[in-house]
């Protein structure tokens, strides 16, 4: 088999700093995108689920739930979409976690950690690739939502702003997934660990219904929930009827700022924590 010929090999370049981080992250993002393309069923399933949510909420609950301050009985369809978008983008948490846990499990993490590459690149590459997949899913979901009656009432630019905030929230949450992936033993555990807390978090928010019937202290939680901030910001930017009739809690009054702040804080905290964990990761 192999005959090892004498090959003049270019010395590895000593880089460092931001340029190397960016380059390594691009290499890792490309790797993850190639993987995703080789497993198309993952993308397909990832798209079917949100489409089902859109249809279910629109037609099962659509007529049953009224929005305070809005007469129209079908307003809920329009209202709930921002919540479903938010829930869908945060599902990226499970994907990132599972992918990273799999790399650990298969020994690939050891290979990466033994290479002279930037310490954050493995995780950054994964989270960016997940954001790309989330964006694709969002395109499908937005089309579906338009069909059932959701609208951007205040113009395309603001509407895209709302979608961008949602995407940022998804990216932030995928860093939580990265930490989970580095902390568990199997990809399966990362998937469930990335999802279980998402349900209470998304339901204890303004995503699916105004929390006016909740006990007061749960209402406070709902209004200060990072989920709610982004959902409210998206509703305001989409110009959704009923969006302005919420509490006077600060995040609800300044939802765009609150959403940005929450996402950036989550990224800062969980990125730092994950990269530290990656440095000492034991697979």
């Amino acid at each position: 088999m192999a005959v090892l010929t004498e090959t003049p090999v270019s010395e590895p370049v000593v880089r460092g700093g931001l340029a190397q981080s960016v380059r390594d992250s691009i290499v890792m993002t490309r790797r993850n995108l190639i993987r995703m393309m080789r497993i198309p069923e993952m993308i397909i399933f990832g798209m079917i689920q949100p489409v089902m949510f859109v249809l279910m909420f629109a037609y099962v609950f659509g007529g049953a739930i009224g929005i305070p301050g809005v007469e129209d009985k079908t307003a809920y369809r329009d209202y709930v979409m921002a919540g479903i978008f938010a829930q869908t983008v945060t599902f990226a948490t499970a994907g990132a976690g599972a992918g990273i846990a799999e790399d650990m499990h298969k020994g690939l993490m050891d290979r990466f950690r033994s290479l002279p590459m930037s310490r954050g690149a493995v995780l950054t590459g994964r989270t960016i690739a997940d954001a790309v997949q989330t964006a694709l899913t969002m395109v499908v979901m937005v089309m579906c939502a338009l069909i059932v009656g959701w609208r951007m009432h205040d113009g395309l630019l603001k509407g895209l702003g709302g979608l961008a905030l949602l995407l940022l929230l998804g990216y932030a949450f995928s860093w939580i997934g990265a930490l989970i992936g580095l902390s568990v033993r199997t990809p399966e555990a990362a998937t469930s660990g990335g999802l279980i807390w998402l349900f209470p978090l998304s339901f204890l928010s303004i995503a699916f219904a105004p929390p006016t019937t909740l006990p007061t202290f749960l209402q406070h939680i709902a209004y200060w929930n990072p989920f709610s901030a982004t959902v409210q910001a998206a509703r305001v930017l989409f110009g959704t009827p009923g969006a302005d009739a919420v509490s006077d809690a600060w995040p609800m009054q300044h939802p765009v700022w609150a959403s940005l702040l929450w996402s950036l804080v989550i990224i800062a905290v969980f990125r730092t924590w994950s990269v530290r964990k990656y440095r000492s990761a034991v697979s």
């Binding site: 370049v13 380059r23 993987r35 080789r38 690939l108 002279p116 590459m117």
Partner: peptide, 19 residues
């Protein structure tokens, strides 16, 4: 990486060695 081809795997590692 089992979803990458042999060539893609080696190129990736080469680039991460900063070639």
């Amino acid at each position: 990486d089992e979803y990458l081809t042999g060539r893609e795997n080696l190129r990736m590692v080469g680039e991460l060695y900063q070639l």
